[in-house]
Each structure stands twice: as structure tokens, then as C-alpha cells.
């Protein structure tokens, strides 16, 4: 074949350009750490990469939802634990005052003590978390219990999304736990009945109150263990999500991350080729009959 200067020149130019293009692409992979940098790099996987990212972003959100639910539940749980404490103390008072050693005077003192406990229950019932009254149902913008223990909340229990198409109820029905709506016992009524019995030196009334305080305690304790169950479910779901996140990240990395070792070895290979082309070109360009 007849070779002219411009063939030689263009061939070298094309080769050098190709090497440089590849090197640039490899550099890009190294600097971004990704082998897929544009849609056309791997169009088939682009949809999967973005789909996986969307799932990961959802999982992150579900975990955020769960964390906020857990924070809410732990506040509710500790409030109810304190309610249980109050009920135990009230029962202790009632048991002592139900015996024959108690008299009208000691019962008056005890009535005062129990009414303090009553106030404490009201304030526990109005427990606030991040501006929301947690025992008020959906009507959590206003305190659900007034000073005499009347309930103004509703029965709404808010749920959070924890997985695709799966929600877990986080909200607590304050009316059910503390006011006995739906067949339970009204904790506040029990307490105020006890106060009345103590004030009026009513031994039978006090004895009745002891039994009712037990029922009230059980009701709250059941609610607490129900909360514990929810916390467990949320934690288990969170763990599942975190495990899936790790798996998905591995899949994602396999699809989009550059294999650094491979990129670097390919790069040095290309560099050698480029240098060889340049050296060879500079020698060939130097040859000319006109120089003889």
C-alpha cells in the first residue's frame, strides 16, 4: 500500500485520540468511583440503579418513621410506668387506711396525699411529646385531661408506614387506657372515689377502692406490655430494613461502582500504549527525504 504523510499523521492522531479518550473515561471512573457515569454507560442497569436508590431512600425514610415512632412510644411507656407507680402508691395508702388502725384524721391526711397523686395522674395523662399530647388520640393539639380528670381526646391511634404497604399503629388510645372507654375501668374515677371515701371516713369505700386500684393497675400494665410489643415489632422491622439496606447497597455497588484495581491496571496499560504511540510518531515524523 502506498503510504503518504497524511495517512501516517492521521493514523497517529486517531490512535492517540482514542487512547486519550479511554484514559479520560478511566480517569472519570477513578475520580467518581463509579463505572456508570452517564445513562448510556450502561442503559440497561440505569433503571435498576435508580430503582434501587429509590428503594434505599424509602428504607431510610421507613427507618426515620420507626425512629420517630420509637421515641414516641418510649415517652408513652415511661409515662404509663409512672402511672403504674402512682397506682401502686395509692393502693399502699388505701390498704393502710382500710385497716382498723386508721382513723378519720389519718384518712383526711391520706385523702390529701391521694389528691396530689390525682393531680400527678392528670399531668401524666397530659404528657406532651414534641408539642403533641400523646394520650389525646388525633386531638393532640390540646390537653386531653382537665383538672378533674375529664377526657376530651378521641380514639384515634396514628399509624406510621414501616414497609411498603405495611403500617404499624404507634398512637395510644388514652381514653381506653386511662378512662376505660370501651369496657375498662376509669382510673381517674377510682382515684376520686378513693379520695371521697377517705374524706368521708368510709372504710368499705376504701376497701372497694383497693380492689379497683388493682384492676386499674392491670389495665395500665396491659397497655404498657402492649406498647412493649409494638416497640419489639418496630425494632424487628428496623433490623430487617437495615439488613436489606446492606444487601441493596452491595447490589448497587456491584452495578455502579468502578473496580479500582482493574481501572488502574487498565490505565497504566493505556498510558504505556499512548507513550509508545507518541514516541513512535515523533521518530517517524522526523524522517524525510527533504532533510537528506
Amino acid at each position: 500500500m502506498r503510504i503518504t504523510e497524511s495517512i501516517i499523521f492521521n493514523t497517529y492522531l486517531n490512535d492517540i485520540r482514542k487512547h486519550q479518550e479511554t484514559l479520560f473515561d478511566l480517569h472519570k471512573q477513578l475520580s467518581t468511583g463509579k463505572s456508570v457515569n452517564t445513562l448510556s454507560d450502561d442503559p440497561v442497569n440505569v433503571g435498576r440503579i435508580l430503582g434501587t436508590r429509590t428503594i434505599l431512600s424509602s428504607y431510610e425514610q421507613y427507618i426515620r418513621n420507626i425512629d420517630s415512632g420509637l421515641a414516641y412510644l418510649s415517652v408513652a411507656e415511661s409515662a404509663l410506668e409512672r402511672v403504674k407507680d402512682v397506682l401502686i402508691r395509692a393502693k399502699e395508702v388505701a390498704v393502710v387506711q382500710a385497716t382498723g388502725t386508721a382513723d378519720a384524721r389519718s384518712r383526711l391526711n391520706a385523702a390529701f396525699e391521694v389528691s396530689q397523686m390525682f393531680d400527678e395522674l392528670v399531668s401524666l395523662g397530659n404528657q406532651n411529646f414534641q408539642g403533641d399530647y400523646i394520650f389525646a388520640g388525633y386531638k393532640n393539639g390540646t390537653a386531653p385531661f382537665d383538672s378533674s380528670g375529664n377526657y376530651s381526646g378521641d380514639t384515634g391511634e396514628y399509624a406510621i408506614q414501616v414497609e411498603q404497604n405495611k403500617t404499624i399503629t404507634v398512637g395510644i388510645n388514652g381514653g381506653e387506657v386511662l378512662k376505660g372507654t370501651g369496657g375498662g375501668i376509669d382510673v381517674f374515677q377510682v382515684m376520686s372515689d378513693l379520695i371521697t371515701a377517705l374524706n368521708s371516713d368510709d372504710t368499705d369505700g376504701i376497701k372497694t377502692a383497693v380492689g379497683r386500684l388493682d384492676t386499674a393497675f392491670d389495665q395500665v400494665a396491659t397497655a404498657v406490655s402492649d406498647l412493649g410489643g409494638r416497640v419489639q415489632r418496630l425494632n424487628a422491622t428496623k433490623e430487617d430494613l437495615e439488613n436489606s439496606q446492606i444487601d441493596l447497597r452491595v447490589v448497587l455497588s456491584g452495578m455502579e461502582d468502578a473496580d479500582v484495581t482493574e481501572v488502574i491496571s487498565e490505565m497504566s496499560k493505556r498510558q504505556v500504549a499512548l507513550e509508545a504511540a507518541m514516541t513512535s510518531a515523533s521518530r517517524v515524523f522526523d524522517l524525510s527525504l527533504f532533510k537528506v
Binding site: Y62, N140, Y158, Q161
Partner: peptide, 8 residues
């Protein structure tokens, strides 16, 4: 979702 965790 965040709104659903704390709608108020």
C-alpha cells in the same frame, strides 16, 4: 412520610 409522623 415525615408529615405523617408528626402531622401537627
Amino acid at each position: 412520610q415525615d408529615l405523617s409522623s408528626d402531622p401537627s
